[in-house]
Design a protein around this nucleic acid. Sequence first.
DNA 1: GTGGTCTAGACCACA
DNA 2: GTGGTCTAGACCACC
Lengths: 130, 130, 130, 130
Amino acid sequence: MVPLQFDINPSSSVPIYKQIVDQVQRMVLGGSLGAGTDLPSVRTVASQHAINPMTVSKAYSQLEVMGLIQRVRGQGMIVATTSSKPKSLKQRLELLRPIICSAAAHARELDISVEDAVKEFRDQYGEETK
Amino acid sequence: MVPLQFDINPSSSVPIYKQIVDQVQRMVLGGSLGAGTDLPSVRTVASQHAINPMTVSKAYSQLEVMGLIQRVRGQGMIVATTSSKPKSLKQRLELLRPIICSAAAHARELDISVEDAVKEFRDQYGEETK
Amino acid sequence: MVPLQFDINPSSSVPIYKQIVDQVQRMVLGGSLGAGTDLPSVRTVASQHAINPMTVSKAYSQLEVMGLIQRVRGQGMIVATTSSKPKSLKQRLELLRPIICSAAAHARELDISVEDAVKEFRDQYGEETK
Amino acid sequence: MVPLQFDINPSSSVPIYKQIVDQVQRMVLGGSLGAGTDLPSVRTVASQHAINPMTVSKAYSQLEVMGLIQRVRGQGMIVATTSSKPKSLKQRLELLRPIICSAAAHARELDISVEDAVKEFRDQYGEETK
DNA sequence: GTGGTCTAGACCACA
DNA sequence: GTGGTCTAGACCACC
């Protein structure tokens, strides 16, 4: 039971709060974060990544509004039980499509063959960050 | 000799000036914009897309700082001759890596297999926007 | 810990934004501005020198494109950590060459001997503006 | 009697017309261009350097206003006889000082020692452009 | 609090 | 004709 670890890049162009929101969203939809799972506390995440607690809080609030996580008094946030139905492959592919599409466009514009790009993709997929 | 036309989406979340910068950058690095090629004038682009000339100018200035384009006094901007050497595959892959890396992370988080993701990638790559 | 102060001359022929860019560039490359150092905020510089914030922002943006400084969200700009390696003498000489070359050409055209010119150079170098 | 050749850099930040003005001025003051010497025709200079004849003309006009050159009907421009007194070393050094001062400042800011800078200067002085 | 983006308009310099 | 510079002001996003 490794505690959930966010993968945050402060110098990315995508805002920190959104990086958190997106990760939780995908992991819940993908099923790797089951209903009822505890989320790390705002303070924990904030200190681990040296970011502002407000930022983490904003992400959690947004996820709560989306109905993906729930606040449990005196315990913190957990993955909402109501959202427990893992999405179908078709639906998950739908969510993946935009970034894949964008990546493909970049590859084409950079005149990189589909084979070279796919090779790179496999490499990156294999490299677990942790 | 179709004059270069930018593909601008004013309602995108990526700033207009950045859309221009990115397009030129990829076309130069990918080789589809050869050294010495004229860029459309600031005023032309601005009026075509109904945007402020300053916005276009900002994009051009940034590209000039990056060394991708050059000013020719009284004539406009051209693709820099110093960047005439089309980038090596290695360098272009370097530019592609970030988005591929991000796409791979998304796929993993969504619990989509590498094969399914690669299949999607090939589909997207094949679909020329034309 | 004197906060960084820019030396701006509004009546100079060199644009204000460029004066800022040049100062930061030389201080970073020369090592007097270490990696991680905070830069004064856009608004601070603007009000101190009674110039438009956009002008300062333009300078900072350009420095960011050059990779010399970084944005830290919600905090401001800092000297880029990637540029922490002070440039080699060779690289710094590369940056000095153009103006030296130009100065040498002027001396020759004015029929001033290399010795007289060097003497003048030593004098000027010695006079710290302090 | 090698015909006068201008050293023009179209990509310099100093305007082309000014490069011409400055060169003629320095060569007259330095004595290498004696009174009565012919200047190359506007067309010659323009075609040699692939620049606009208007630009050369503007430079010549400005030099004429300054009294450094004269228009001779049917023959072109010559170095003015009235300006024939070559300046003293002291006066010429005065003209050289600004750029030397600027070069010295750059060297200091780039943390380049006076000896290294002087060495570079001697190298550049020795390298005749032609 | 931080910087970013865009607009509108004026003026300049260069070719 | 080209691009550059600066201003003033509005609005947004992030921390």
